[in-house]
Design a protein around this nucleic acid. Structure first.
Lengths: 343, 343
DNA sequence: CCTCGCTCCGTAAACGTTTACGAGACTATG
DNA sequence: CATAGTCTCGTAAACGTTTACGGAGCGAGG
């Protein structure tokens, strides 16, 4: 309720000067500034964000847009909360607040984004769960709104993104399995249009080619990105005429369902079929035999994403989008027993 | 960029009428309203939130405040995301948006809240991780800002809250363990001032008394609300001169650490010591032997909380806070083998 | 003494809405 | 015909900031 006007007349100073003093403008006497700051502290004055936003045409708020229906929440398994922590800490140094924009998916994600843009509720976006064909990026670029993406897309125009190193993981996994003597290596990817599936498959394909192994479409299983999906993948794998000797999972929770299915069939990961998972998570740590997979620091990834967005916002008018920056985030190998003994 | 002014002159109508038409006021010709709505749709006009907020003195945004340092995120394990889904769906029906206010805890939670209040960034709050002595509630009530809490507190003034049924769980668990012949029942609670520990202990105490068992402070273990906390609790339990025959964990992830410690000592839950966990989670489902615990529908709890807040906001000026409403959320029993066979 | 530049501050106009108020054009009622 | 009431709509004043502009005061240089 304070208001800058109250503060000004309490100090017997014009509101313009008060505003300048609080915002650190240089054309104000240091003595005056001290008085203003002291009075603001005393009266508990904080600038009303609506007024400021209206005048400045910006809100100092960053929006993290996520798919957020019940299923997505369950399967994302604390991924975004872990990311927000480091994002938050990067942004807070620049007086920016982070809010999550949970898209309830009943309506289209594109419509949701458009509404958020029109409402002028945030200055910039972090877009996640990128699809291969994702209208959101061209829209944001046309609207000249800064953003970065977590994940790639097939947009015609370049934009800034960060992503996990799917190519690296695909190459490493195939190399390792081939070295152990495997030739029939299946891969399980999410069935949705989410882009990471495509990226991983490209890496997988290239790796096979390097080893002179023909790509076999039958060995690509597409299921939901969940535990249940992993179970279903297990069913499909075991129904193949010629059973694969190894399988790579592109989403971590799938490992849980796959293990369950294998156990039902009396099969043991690492002995009867080699299994490599993707990202290690608390829930996959308890699998027996221990899952061979990769580790990834989400907090560092968040920091990288945040700084990328800051640089985008700063440089926006000058050279964006001619200088897209991208970031491929490495994962470190975490060997278990599930991919079998070395040969 | 559209702006209501552009829209008005495109229609050759005053901006006042346009605004009234869009907001569904009754003093506008139906014919005119149709034209306005059509033009708004065509030009993609959506009201600028800053302007509206400034004029109306409200933002139509609800803030969900959470402790959100790295540790809290890890240990909350998808609890809040699951809650936001149902909150979101309740609020969206009333044209309200939900944002998460992640308090990075470096600074005091109280200061953080005060800043958010002064910034006028949200109309109402949902407060979580309530402490026994929590200054936030009295502050919000004095400031006349609507809120509900997830969890109770020891505030002098009544306010609206929802909470899990700790008393019910405590009573049920003690009853069950006593029926199985246990007399030396330990309990592990979070060591922080978080209020649920106190509530649970009261229920535990009352239950013991009903069964004529003396309360023994030695059997109350206080550790961090995490896997590691559970491990540490295991260490402390096993060091007691006279080992308890049963233990109740007031935070679910503790079970994982406790199992690990017991395994290291060659002890089996359910055979050598009875264990009852609190809320079942994906991560606790895999424990062997299966953990005896309780289930809870987070989405229904979120709906309840959301509606409680709506009613608070609506009724605010009339009878709040003289008519506090509270909600104790039930959990259903999910028996496993970890609490031993019946006798 | 005049002019220039510098420092500091006040004035007032925006930003995009909502809404109290009043006015004009009707209709109904007497 | 006068009056009151109803239905529409335009006018203009807020809401709380930030910021372009200009002016007052003062010292320095000519």
């Amino acid at each position: 309720m304070a208001g800058i006007r109250k503060l000004a007349e309490h100090l017997d100073i014009s509101i313009g000067t008060v505003s300048r003093a609080l915002n650190g403008k240089h054309d104000v006497n240091e003595e005056t500034r001290k008085r203003v700051l002291a009075a603001a502290e005393e009266l508990g004055y904080v600038a009303n964000q609506s007024g400021r936003s209206l005048r400045q045409g910006k809100t100092n708020v960053i929006g993290l847009m996520t798919d957020w229906n019940a299923e997505a929440i369950e399967n994302s398994d604390n991924f975004f909360p872990a990311l927000t922590a480091s994002l938050q800490s990067v942004f807070s140094r620049h007086k920016l607040d982070l809010v999550m924009l949970p898209c309830p998916n009943e309506e289209d994600r594109f419509e949701y984004l458009k509404r958020m843009v029109a409402r002028h509720i945030v200055d910039a976006f972090i877009i996640t769960s990128t699809r291969r064909n994702d209208k959101r990026f061209d829209f944001l670029m046309k609207a000249k709104i800064p953003f970065v993406a977590l994940g790639r897309s097939a947009s015609a125009h370049p934009f800034r993104w960060a992503d996990l190193d799917f190519e690296g993981v695909a190459g490493f996994s195939v190399d390792r399995l081939v070295a152990k003597g495997h030739r029939r290596i299946a891969v399980v990817v999410p069935s949705s249009d989410i882009n990471l599936g495509h990226v991983f498959l490209e890496g997988y394909r290239a790796s096979l080619q390097r080893h002179g192994i023909a790509f076999n479409d039958e060995l690509v299983i597409r299921v939901g990105a969940s535990e249940q999906g992993g179970y279903q993948a297990g069913c499909e794998l075991l129904q193949l005429a010629e059973r694969p000797t190894a399988v790579i999972l592109v989403y971590e929770l799938m490992a849980i369902g796959l293990y369950r299915k294998l156990e039902e069939e009396g099969l043991l990961p690492g002995r009867d079929i080699a299994v490599i998972g993707f990202r290690e998570q608390p829930r996959t740590k308890f699998l027996q035999p221990r899952l061979t997979c990769f580790r990834c620091s989400l907090s560092d990834l968040g920091t990288g994403l945040g700084e990328m967005l800051l640089s985008t916002m700063k440089a926006y008018n000058r050279f964006y989008p001619d200088a897209p920056e991208t970031l491929i985030w490495p994962l470190t190998f975490a060997p278990g027993e599930s991919d079998g003994p070395d040969r």
